[in-house]
Amino acid sequence: MSTQDAREVSDKLMIELRNMNKWYGDFHVLKNINLEVKKGERIVICGPSGSGKSTMIRCINRLEEHQEGDIIVNGVELTNNLKNIEIIRKDVGMVFQHFNLFPHLTVLENCCLAPIWVKKEPRKQAEATAMQYLERVKIPEQALKYPGQLSGGQQQRVAIARSLCMNPDVMLFDEPTSALDPEMIKEVLDVMIELADEGGMTMLCVTHEMGFAKRVADRVIFMDAGQIIEENEPHEFFNNPQHERTQLFLSQIIQH
């Protein structure tokens, strides 16, 4: 736990969700979500399947559109204004459950594409940055391979590197390890832990890896039926859950 002391969380708000509501057709999927995340904070979101975790973090970079309330990321409000969406997406990286690497591009090209075409970096510089991040996720030697030639764990690490290459302020993780074979989960979590320990990066992770949550989270959020039911710092959250639904959920995932 000593490394956690080294982290700083500033007072600056990075993400604000205010009375946010979302419907899929008639289905009220997110109900009155209020959430403030400070710059550099690491948040783990858990809850039963279908509770709206993915939908909530996908609203933050506008992969899904919310209908009511405000979402403000790094001082920019998410509206239908395409300029704002563009700015926010440059600041927010996302890692998906199924990696979503581009299969027709090499690992290096996957990492360089957005820096070159979105941030207009010169190719040489983008490649150098990409190699640096591939080293950090410990697969520089795979740079010239195609995603299909890599294992799931390697692909997910590439996906993390690809997001980091855009030098985002916020990283969203949507169950990054739940599509992986058991023996590959650790290599991905290790990379995420390292990223968290470095400090400075605001992280929102949807995950059921409770060890990871205890190790890195500043706050754990529990969602059920489209609502935030409970939030607390990890020690309290796991040892002293307040809400009975949280207790039930925790008992279920610990038993299995």
Binding site: N61, F96, N100, L113, A114, V118, S163
Partner: peptide, 21 residues
């Protein structure tokens, strides 16, 4: 669908994500 989403999340515009991805 994940390909479209990955391109979007990286900030690629519609035409860029169509042309490159």
């Amino acid at each position: 669908k994940g390909q479209y989403e990955a391109a979007d999340s990286l900030g690629l515009s519609y035409w860029k994500s169509m042309s490159f991805i």
